[in-house]
Amino acid sequence: MVDAANTLPGTAGEPPAGRPLLRIENIRKSFGDLEVLRDVSLSVAEHQVVAVIGPSGSGKSTMLRCINRLEEPNSGRIFLGDDEITARGARLDKLRRNIGMVFQQFNLYPHLNARDNVALALRKVLKLDRAAAHARAEKALASVGLAEKTLAFPAQLSGGQQQRVGIARALAMEPRVVLFDEPTSALDPELVSGVLAVIRDLKGLGYTMVVVTHEMAFAREVADHLIFMDKGQIVEEGKPAELFAAPRSDRLREFLSSVLGH
């Protein structure tokens, strides 16, 4: 068994960093008449951290949710390694264990304590026995700084702690890519930094991550690649420092000046 907290998700023998692990090709998505994603393509290399920014309603979250098919794209293809997630008859339950997801509202199971929140899928999906699942869940919780809280119920935890349980739940499955859907947007300001620090640690451990966020400083410092979306399209992408310093499009320039307040 590999320890989620201490090992790179891509272990020895895999191709070197830089090979695209996640590829999104020309996805479109509409809700009724509303076109939310208009031909979005994107590729994420192994060990890369991609931050996605943009005004609300720009399709960032929908794009993220298409990756594990919580939303069904109307057209386009999505690949994780050699597996096509959007293939007809794709074994979604199998594919989803390789894609961790962290939600804005945490979505912890309120009837289970922190350890069992993490252990549920370990037991029912990976079929670990109770002791092994608990051990792995406790390690995952320790890796997000919650070793003391394994038996606490979600209602007894702060928002920041709850979100860290959410992260541990995703990591314990040893996913190949972790998706973050505005992980700090529902948190009180003083709790944001703790959660961001955990995500920063994961980058150090080599996790491949796509992070939809409103935290501009975080996007600038932590992301290897920055994506700016507006009106269902990727308007601009590149190195975060360059995009922040010299946005090429008017839309990114306007967006940055509105969120950064200058």
Binding site: D93, F103, L120, A121
Partner: peptide, 26 residues
């Protein structure tokens, strides 16, 4: 909450497993 379904399915639980261990339990 629909978020409960989404969280469970995102970890690879099947529909039936999600119904039993997450949704019905609540």
């Amino acid at each position: 909450n629909p978020g409960q379904w989404e969280a469970a399915r995102s970890t690879g639980l099947s529909f039936a497993q999600t119904l039993r261990y997450v949704v019905l339990a609540q």
